[in-house]
């Protein structure tokens, strides 16, 4: 069969992965994924700034970075809870309740972030 890690095979696999992804996921999932990508970029940007320029107000860095990480994680949780494929996993968490949990968690997160930021 095809070798494990030859570049053409890898790029083929990535291409097929992308195709499978865009076919199989619903619009709402993609919407969540866009949000996730934004959060990831923002987090990476802050991390690079901290490492390359300065980490002086370390608490501000932690607050900003945790805000991104926390929001990312909560959104990813929302995604997995809302995904119809996972219905069996989350017996007691309906999609509406998932969103409510997501909103509450995010508010608590942002509360702590702003307390830690300044």
């Amino acid at each position: 069969m095809a070798p494990k890690s030859s570049p053409p095979a890898a790029s083929n696999v990535v291409h097929s992965l992308w195709k499978a992804y865009s076919d199989q996921t619903s619009d709402r999932m993609k919407f969540i994924d866009a949000f996730l990508v934004f959060l990831m970029l923002s987090g990476v940007a802050q991390f690079l700034y901290c490492v390359l320029v300065t980490d002086y107000p370390f608490n501000a860095f932690l607050a900003g970075f945790s805000s991104n990480v926390g929001q990312f994680v909560l959104t990813a949780s929302l995604r997995s809870q809302v995904n119809p494929e996972n219905k069996n996993e989350f017996k007691e968490v309906s999609p509406e309740r998932a969103f409510a949990d997501f909103a509450l968690g995010s508010i608590v997160l942002h509360f702590f972030v702003y307390n830690f930021l300044g």
């Binding site: 107000p57 501000a60 900003g64 929001q71």
Partner: peptide, 10 residues
Amino acid sequence: PYYTGAISTS
């Protein structure tokens, strides 16, 4: 950068 990051996330 951190302020903008946190605010943009919210």
